[in-house]
Amino acid sequence: MTNKHLESISALLDDEVNQSELDSTLQQTVDTTENVEAFSRYSLIGDVLRNEQLLETDGSFAAGIQAAIANVEQEVVTEDSSVVDISSHVNWRSKVASKLKQFSQSSTGRNSAQFAIAASVALVTIVGVSNIPQTNSQYSAPVAQTTPLVSGVAPVSLASDGVKNRPSANQMTQTRINALIADHQQQLKAVDDKKEAIDTNEDKKVIEP
């Protein structure tokens, strides 16, 4: 079922039509009773949505729904009788109790009951234990790390520490230092002893104040 043909009515009520559409739609609407009812419903919906009118429903709608639900209920109850049986059985509690008593009196039942108790205790323990480290890890992480991973070996960074050791020396400075030390040693190597003897006397006078 499509409401395509009622679209124009909806559009009219939403004030979204031009003059020619308005005329044709009104003409159509008066043609059939279906359209008239639809016009009535739509204006009601619009009024309710715009809070312009309180929704007044007649009793027939609610009664119809009640009747439909009553039908469905009845069908469910009558068809799924087994479910109704257990819950509605007068003696189900006493029956289950006697069954459990029998089970617990048998040796396997007793053992398994003990096992069940032990298992539940263990479960509590596990839950408890598994909870404790979680809270611990938040507040005392170092305790968990005290177990030595590698013994006797200190962690080492692979990055060169040469520059870090001399924070005042950046790359440029470092290059100059190396160059100067190398040059100093080069100069010492090439000192001419004969020259030294002559120059010693000459330059003394120049340099010393």
Binding site: A179, A182, T200
Partner: peptide, 13 residues
Amino acid sequence: SLIKSDRHHLSIT
């Protein structure tokens, strides 16, 4: 005392 003085380029830089 002064042994030598000059102006030279450092071999590295």
